[in-house]
């Protein structure tokens, strides 16, 4: 039993794989940034009156339960034109919506609990010194929340890069989609999947190393 390796068959797809890698990174980066940024206002809403926070909390729990693939498909196949009379999003935008919403649900809850865990004596003594409310938020609450949520968020961001492969199901030209196309013409499936694996190793490993450094940084350890 033997297998004849032939990566050269994938040669014509070199550029396509490179572009696919770029889209993978793009999907991961944009959904991470948007998910984290939108997590902040959501976290603040979760701390409001129960009329707001209870339904929002339930919605967030529901979103966390739904698989990312279903969120992406839902964002893409939602009957926008029939219900709202507007055209649906492109596969790229639908994928970004699905990935962002999934991360948003996690971020909002993490940030909310981090805000609640800011030591009360730090906030009280800053107020007692004459800090204004925005100064308390900027200089006491914000740094504390960032230090609490950064390690878990870096794990979410790495996860987003990998989950972006789901966008291939609706035809976004990222790495996995390129591999599928290449396979269908060359029939070199093992080589194609190994190429995709290598792309992810190259994209994700630096992030993992960075996350480890951040976790060990003295700034983060001084809690």
């Amino acid at each position: 039993m033997s297998y004849n390796w032939d990566f050269s068959a994938l040669g014509p797809y070199k550029l396509a794989f490179l572009q696919g890698a770029c889209w993978t990174l793009y999907l991961g980066a944009v959904s991470s940034a948007a998910g984290s940024a939108l997590g902040i206002p959501m976290a603040l809403l979760l701390r409001q009156h129960p009329v707001v926070s209870v339904p929002l909390g339930l919605a967030i729990d529901a979103l966390r339960a739904i698989p990312n693939l279903v969120l992406i498909l839902g964002a893409y196949y939602f009957p926008y034109s029939r219900l709202f009379g507007i055209p649906g999003p492109s596969p790229l935008v639908a994928s970004l919506i699905g990935l962002t919403v999934a991360q948003l649900a996690y971020s909002a809850d993490l940030i909310r609990s981090a805000i609640e865990a800011v030591p009360a004596n730090q906030v009280l003594s800053a107020r007692a010194l004459g800090f204004r409310e925005w100064q308390v938020a900027r200089w006491v609450v914000f740094p504390s929340v960032v230090r609490q949520v950064l390690p878990s968020h870096m794990a979410l961001w790495i996860g987003n890069v990998k989950l972006s492969s789901l966008a291939s199901t609706i035809g976004v030209h990222e790495s996995v989609w390129v591999a599928q196309v290449a396979m269908s013409t060359t029939f070199r499936s093992l080589e194609a999947w190994m190429t995709v694996g290598a792309i992810y190793i190259v994209l994700v490993t630096p992030l993992t190393l960075l996350a480890r450094r951040v976790e060990r940084s003295s700034w983060l350890r001084h809690q």
Partner: peptide
């Protein structure tokens, strides 16, 4: 200015 009972220095 109130000096609270518990120190509240910024840890970072």
């Amino acid at each position: 200015t109130l000096v609270t009972q518990q120190p509240g220095l910024l840890p970072h």
